[in-house]
Amino acid sequence: MDLSAISPALLLASLMIGATPLLLAALGELVVERAGVLNLGVEGMMILGAICGFAMAVETGSPPLGFLAGAVGGALLSLVFAVLTQIFLANQVATGLALTLFGLGLSSLLGQGYVGIKPPSTARLDLGPLSDIPLLGRAFFSHDWMVYLSLFLTLATWFFLSRTRAGLKLRAIGENHEAAHALGLHVVAIRFAAIAFGGAMAGLGGAYLSLVRVPQWTEGMTAGAGWIALAIVVFASWRPGRVLLGAYLFGGVTVLQLNLQAAGSALPVEYLSMSPYVVTILVLVLISARRSRGTAAPASLGKPFHAVS
């Protein structure tokens, strides 16, 4: 085994890139679920964001416009879900699953003309002297701006949920929508906003896959990333900080195990291959189990809401 072949700086750098799509999608879903809505269509919104972002970036030559288009695409798709579940009170689980299938189909239709094209490259954020620090510079301070935006959004989500009045309202609706409604909160309107935010974030995550991480458009390219994002939200017990940890653990161990394999590690490949799932679940469950205060899930999660008065 030749572990010296693995460069820690490059490893950390690919870890951050690998984790970003998951982090974005999981953060979005976290807000949706904190508002009491279960949207299982993350995979569908991600892949639609991937093709919308890719197509826009290729057509305009501008990655920022591409990311914007990815977010808009994901948000528009999520509004289909919002209308069906919040206005027509359709079953959230079934609608979410349908959304995934619809997103996969729609994206391959939209993507017909974009196979085999190279997208414009996303600019690295110039952090000046920070990028020149040995090791740390390459690992943490030489990424594209989306990586830093995703970290900022984690912080912003945490702040919004736990430190603002609007965040408190959103959480109240997620815990007990009947009571929130009695207090005069606009349950449906706030849930619409949360669902759209979730869609936009999933779309951003998808666009990051097709514009930076792979980078290309291929049908079905999310290959289950949306489901992993959903799982991370649950194992992170609906907290932004733990979602960050979960996404980085999963992304990190995935990249690490591939590197270990490439370096000819003596560890059996079967164990390496399952390690991202095992490590992520184990760590997050242990953290969440430390102080058991009943279930962390929002109490109204997935329940339909119909204002009677």
Partner: peptide, 23 residues
Amino acid sequence: VVWAFTWFDPAKESDAARALIEQ
């Protein structure tokens, strides 16, 4: 040799290629 344990997962295939190239 890197075993991806999948036939199709562009992100993982890309990660595997990058890991090999970096080494």
